[in-house]
Simulated scan of single mutants.
Amino acid sequence: MRLTRLTAEILEQLGHLFVVALLRSLSILPYEWVARLGSALGAALYALPGRRKHIVLVNLRLCFPEKSVREFDELAREHFRHVVRSYLERGIQWFGSEQTIRNIVEVESEIDLEEENPPPTIFMGFHFVGIEMGCMLYSLQSPVAALYTHMSNTRLCDLARRQRGRFGAEMIERSTSARKIVRLLHEGKPVMLAADMDHGIENSVFVPFFDVPACTLTSVSRLARMGRARVVPFVTEVLPDFKGYRLNVFAPLSDFPSASDINDARCMNAFLETQILKFPAQYYWVHRRFKHRPQGMAAVY
Rank of each mutant, 00 (worst) to 15 (best):
E114M: 05
I111E: 03
P120A: 10
G134F: 13
S109R: 11
A145L: 03
P118S: 08
M133L: 09
D112L: 02
S139K: 02
R102W: 15
L137P: 02
E98H: 03
E110G: 04
I131G: 05
I122F: 02
V107A: 01
E114N: 12
N103C: 08
E116K: 13
I104Q: 09
E116D: 15
V105H: 07
N103D: 15
F128I: 09
M133F: 01
V144D: 00
V144T: 12
I131V: 14
F128T: 08
R102E: 15
M133S: 08
E114F: 05
Q141R: 15
M124N: 14
C135R: 15
E116A: 14
V105Q: 01
N103V: 01
F123K: 03
D112W: 04
S97V: 04
E115R: 13
L113Q: 04
E115W: 05
G125V: 06
L140M: 13
H127L: 10
E98T: 14
N103H: 04
L140Y: 09
S142R: 12
V107S: 00
S139F: 03
S139I: 05
M136Y: 04
G130I: 07
I122C: 03
P143C: 01
L140K: 08
I131E: 13
I101G: 05
M133W: 06
D112E: 08
R102N: 14
G125N: 03
L137V: 01
P119G: 02
E108A: 12
S109V: 06
Y138P: 00
P143K: 02
E110K: 11
S109Y: 06
D112K: 01
A145K: 06
Q99P: 00
E108N: 10
N117G: 11
P120S: 04
I101Y: 09
T100Q: 15
G130D: 01
E110V: 02
E115C: 11
F126C: 12
V105Y: 07
Y138R: 11
S142D: 12
M136I: 15
I122K: 04
V144S: 09
T121F: 09
I131W: 15
I111F: 00
P143T: 09
A145Q: 03
V129D: 08
V129H: 05
G134V: 03
C135E: 14
Q141D: 07
E114S: 11
S97H: 05
G125Y: 12
E114Q: 12
L140S: 03
L113P: 05
